[in-house]
Each structure stands twice: as C-alpha cells, then as structure tokens.
Design a protein around this nucleic acid. Structure first.
Lengths: 156, 156
DNA sequence: ATTTATGCAAACGTTTTGCATGTGT
DNA sequence: ACACATGCAAAACGTTTGCATAAAT
C-alpha cells in the first residue's frame, strides 16, 4: 500500500515548547503522530473534533497514521487531562483541548447542530443536583438535547 | 396523559386495555412481540432497561424473539411518544415508559451507577440555556456525569 | 537497551438493513 | 387481501485489542 513513504524530517510549524511539555507531562513519549494529533486539536481551537475529523486533519501530512493510533493518542491525552472528550449520546463523540474554557453543549436532536453554553448558566443547577444525588459533579460537562432555532421554525 | 390515573399495582396485572390502546395509538399493529416488550417496560417501572435487558426479560416467554425486533419495536414506541430513550453517552442506552415522571439521570463515570434527579432541581437552568442558545429544550432530559458517593469515598 | 508506541488486521458490541415469510387488521 | 411486522443473516458502525515491528528515551 504505502510505496514510498519517507519519514519527513520534523515538518512544518515549529511546535511550541509548552505543547511538547504538555504531551510529555506524564512521562509519555513525544511521537510524530501525537504531535500531529495534538496540532489538529490546537488548530481546531474551540471547535471540537470527532475522531474521524482528527484523522482527516492528520491524513494530509501523514496518510498512514492509523485510526487506532488516533484513538490511543486521544485516550492518553484524556487520561493526562490535556483533552476533554464529550459524548453527545447520539453516536457522536468529540474531543477538544482541556485548555479551552469550560463550557457545555446543546445538540439539536433534529439536525445535529451543536451550540456552546456558558458555565454560569448551569452551575447553580449542578449544586442542586449534587445535593440531591450525592454525586460529585465538580468538573462536569453537560450535553443538552433540544431543537435549534432553525429546526424549531421549520417544524413548529 | 391518561385521564384516569389508577394506582399502578407493582405486580403485572393482565394487560390493561389502555396499554393495548397505547400500542395501537398510531395505527400500529398489536403483535405478541410488541406486547411482550411493552410488558417488560411496564414491569420495570421507573427502572430503565437496556435493549439487551429487554431481550433478557422477553426471552423467557418468547426465546425466538429476535433482538432486531426489539430494536424495531422500541423505535416505534419512541416514535409514538410512548417510550423514552436515554443515551448515557458511555455506550449504554436505556428505555423507559414515557408515562413515568419526567426526571434526569446522574451517571457515575467510575462505576456506572445511575441515580435519578428531580426535574425541579434542573428546570431553572434549562430556561437560561434556552435563552442563551436559542434552542428549545421543552421536554429535555439531562444526563449528568460525575462520581457517586461510593466511588468518591474510595478514590479520595 | 529498554520501554513505549505504532501499524495492521482482526475482533468487538451494538444497532441497522434486505429480503422472504408470516400475521394482524 | 393487504399492508405491516417478524426472523434471520449479514452488514454497518465506531471503537478496541493482540501482536510483530519501529521508534523514543
């Protein structure tokens, strides 16, 4: 399959030292693949990416980078607290840098659109839920499901 | 909502006419399989069941009842508004009668335990989220993720 | 040198689908 | 009689895993 694949000598944008440090934070090894995956998340900013979208972003520079490697890298990042994983519960799960501001999501059950919600709109409720359930929700992220304005107008 | 709210006996009574009517509500056909699946949900009360648990419950009386049929029946019930489906976002999805009181769930990310949360603990937040996002969350159900008391104690 | 990470393929569990047969209405 | 529902097997889906190889420390 891969005829001539030569290992690119450390490619394009100079990676910031802090990012390297972050990946290495828990004694992990800095590999070309992890750097690429990390870069994809950095470039995405506060737009979360699915595992598939990470693959798309990364397959330009490294077409042979396997999806399994992406899952493993993302798992590591999540385990190290560098990346946040959100499962929308409709078959989609997405990843974004933990450094982004904490926020919550609203997903349109009709068209799948996703919007962000500020934490302060939600925090008081978290306290009440903690009190009632005895669970700790310290850094909980919520995913709301509803109907977006566009779909509401169309259907309603 | 039913006009006459009879105190639901915990036991499973002979199939009530209202239940038959419910299944038929949208011109659906009342089949043996659907009746069994429905009964499983009724017997479960406010304990939600996974698709697999419905299968287990139903395979006593009808061992040949195929899992695909269960998914199709549950889809129909959900489409007709008789059953509520909740996807916990950790690979588990569960079903319960829509007639049960509306409530929300807290899932322990460590052990998977699930607790219920009353709607009034949460409703004010829903309004704020609606305002901020422009989404409509009328009958939204939330799934919170956190650490249950037992796991919190164990881990520190 | 040692340990960890990768590529690959294969396995996984859940859900969906095409099609022939069977059943409620 | 007819449309609809079922059983079955097979496929789709996203994700995980075992293992030999490769690369980072």
């Amino acid at each position: 399959m891969a005829a001539t694949r030569r290992p690119r000598p450390h490619s394009h944008a100079p990676r910031a030292l802090e990012e390297v440090a972050a990946i290495r934070s828990h004694g992990r090894r800095l590999t070309r693949q992890r750097a690429l995956i990390w870069d994809a998340l950095v470039r995405a900013g506060d737009r979360h990416l699915s595992a598939r979208e990470v693959a798309d972003a990364v397959h330009g520079p490294a077409p042979e980078l396997h999806q399994a490697t992406i899952y493993r890298a993302l798992d590591v990042f999540v385990a190290d607290g560098l990346v946040r994983r959100t499962d929308f519960g409709d078959g989609r799960a997405v990843y974004e840098l933990a450094a982004e501001h904490r926020h919550h999501h609203v997903v349109c059950t009709s068209c799948g659109a996703v919007a962000h919600v500020h934490d302060d709109a939600v925090r008081p409720a978290l306290g009440r839920v903690e009190a009632e359930s005895g669970f700790r929700l310290a850094d909980a992220e919520l995913t709301f499901h509803g109907t977006c304005a566009a779909c509401g107008a169309a259907t309603g």
